[in-house]
Design a protein around this nucleic acid. Structure first.
Lengths: 146, 146
DNA sequence: TGTTAACGGTTGATTTTGTAACTAACAACA
DNA sequence: TGTTGTTAGTTACAAAATCAACCGTTAACA
């Protein structure tokens, strides 16, 4: 017989807990970029990187976001089609191209950035300041595990 | 101009942080159930629920795990094909059927349960006891937000 | 009872992701 | 220069997730 205190169930499994929290907390925000701009998560992320750091190549977005290059390639394609960004060939190295947000892209970025900021604050509000601080630190640690 | 202290980037966005931590922490364990038993995450979850709680209907697994019913239906199908579980019709209500692990299913469950337990401990070991306690509490809060 | 609504579960079509192979451009160096 | 290896990015195909419609059964209730 397994003793009660040794009981280990799914609800205590960190990867599962993390996943549940991640899914639940993404939902409301996902709604926003989907409904307002018809974006997928990958697209919102690419937009966010460009809005935050300015002109980048797909490669640079990849190293910063750890997204796979095919995801980025497809997100860029869709963002270009919908006129959220433009591509500028790099004359010095014609393998890569620079990505820039259009005016419309910037507007979407600013809007979503503000929503994200408020949403993050609302999430944090359900936690005590100590919980919030430690949660963020612990998540960073776990994310950097590889 | 945005002030530095107001800087809000993706790395500070809780849903993003949660997602990164969840993905990273799932990876190594995913390897195990994929390589040893050819299972998908949905299948491992169904297996885990049955191993932990015993006989359940698909519906019950759904309410406990919050997985969509089509995911469960397909996971059950594959687990049945591979002889990890059997279905027993409910004579009282013929819409539903009871799911039971086979001997082989139990063996896989026990094996994976042990691995998960050890893996969870290893993850927790990268955190201080206080961090661990607060992390788990905070994750549970966030997961219950809806 | 008969009719309608709800439920558990499955199926098929569509979308999205993952994997590998590919193209074009550049770098290294004999 | 020519050959070989790398790199940035795309494409094709397979695997998986999502969504809506569906089937057979049970519940509700006139």
């Amino acid at each position: 017989m397994m003793s009660q205190k040794d009981a280990f169930d799914l609800q205590n499994f960190l990867p599962y807990l993390l996943n549940q929290a991640a899914e639940e907390s993404s939902l409301a925000f996902q709604q926003v970029y989907r409904d307002r701009y018809g974006m997928l998560r990958t697209e919102w992320r690419v937009l966010f990187h460009l809005g935050l750091y300015g002109r980048l190549t797909a490669k640079e977005i990849g190293t910063r976001s750890k997204m796979h290059k095919t995801k980025i390639s497809r997100a860029v394609q869709r963002l270009e089609e919908r006129r959220f960004l433009t591509r500028a060939p790099d004359e010095a190295d014609r393998r890569q191209e620079y990505l820039d947000l259009t005016v419309q892209g910037h507007a979407a970025y600013r809007d979503l950035h503000a929503v994200a900021h408020r949403y993050d604050a609302a999430l944090a509000d359900t936690l005590t300041p100590e919980e919030e601080r430690i949660l963020r630190a612990a998540l960073r640690k776990l994310a950097r595990m590889a």
